[in-house]
Computed example of a mutant assay.
Amino acid sequence: MDVKTGLFYLFAAVLLFAAFRVITARNPVYAALYLVLAFFQAAAIWLLLRAEFLAIVLVLVYVGAVMVLFLFVVMMLDINVDGLRQGFWKHFPLAAGVGALIALEMAGVLMGGFRLAAPRSAMVGGPDSSNTLELGKLLYTGYLYPLEIAAVILLVAIVAAIALTLRARKDSKYQNPSDQVRVKARDRVRIVQMPVTRAAQPVAEQPQASAETKA
């Protein structure tokens, strides 16, 4: 067994362990951190397969953006873990059925075998060609229209998210920037004349209290 095979088994073992801990960890923060570890191990396997672009995209997009956002959301929200686990056994048969179906589909694909063929980079640009360069050429030539359609869909999703966030609601409190700009100094500060503070008058002693003192 060479070094590359040993690294593959090491990364695969850590990946399986991290994926198992994602679904078994009781703390949501620990589950998110284990998912980050799983992403890193998957990126390392992509590097072993000479898919540098996919490895960098996996680290930058999922670990650097998506998982950091998930981690901040999980840490900022007060999630009641006990409440989430109340319906576990209720939904377990459905989840087990879906998992078994996915396992059967993956087994059907894997048992069919893999078709070994020459890599795309070797057929197009030779063995010394860059994987990222060939992927970029293929993406912006043969798949240009699907790429533009996906960009338009993402743009529409961004605009829709902004529109849903900035819509006027009855229970939301917001300020009008135009009114803030037109405000004047006399509207911000108002001087009120108050009477001069007087010294407190001494309180006369009660007769009952003086009698108790003499006794």
Rank of each mutant, 00 (worst) to 15 (best):
D2C: 05
K4Y: 05
T5R: 13
F8S: 03
F11A: 11
V14C: 08
L15F: 10
F20G: 11
F20Y: 15
F20E: 00
I23A: 11
I23H: 03
T24D: 06
A25Y: 05
R26I: 01
R26A: 09
P28S: 03
V29R: 11
A31Y: 02
A32M: 13
L33Q: 10
V36L: 06
L37N: 09
A38C: 05
A38S: 09
A38M: 04
A38W: 06
F39V: 06
F39K: 04
Q41T: 03
I45Q: 07
W46V: 00
W46R: 05
F53K: 12
F53N: 09
L54Q: 10
L58V: 01
L58C: 07
V59L: 03
L60R: 00
Y62L: 06
V63K: 01
V63I: 11
G64C: 03
M67Q: 12
M67P: 00
L69C: 01
F70W: 02
F70K: 02
F70G: 02
L71C: 06
V73D: 14
L77T: 10
D78C: 01
I79T: 07
D82M: 11
D82N: 14
G83T: 07
G83K: 08
R85Q: 11
G87M: 12
G87A: 15
W89I: 05
P93I: 03
L94S: 12
A96D: 00
V98E: 08
A100H: 02
L101A: 15
L101M: 10
A103C: 08
L104V: 14
A107S: 07
A107P: 01
G108C: 05
L116S: 10
L116V: 14
L116Y: 12
A117I: 02
R120N: 07
A122H: 01
A122D: 09
V124Q: 07
D128E: 11
S129Q: 08
S129I: 04
S130E: 07
N131M: 00
T132E: 14
E134D: 09
K137D: 04
L138M: 06
Y140C: 09
T141G: 01
T141L: 07
Y143M: 12
L144F: 13
L144R: 11
L144D: 02
Y145H: 04
E148H: 07
A150C: 04
A151I: 10
V152G: 03
V152H: 01
L154P: 00
V156F: 13
A160R: 13
L164V: 10
R167Q: 14
R169I: 03
R169E: 11
K170R: 14
D171H: 05
D171K: 11
V181H: 07
V181S: 08
R182H: 10
R182W: 04
V183H: 07
A185Q: 07
D187E: 15
R190E: 11
V192T: 10
A199R: 08
Q201L: 09
Q201R: 11
E205P: 15
E205I: 13
E205Q: 15
P207H: 04
Q208I: 09
A209V: 15
S210N: 00
A211W: 06
T213L: 10
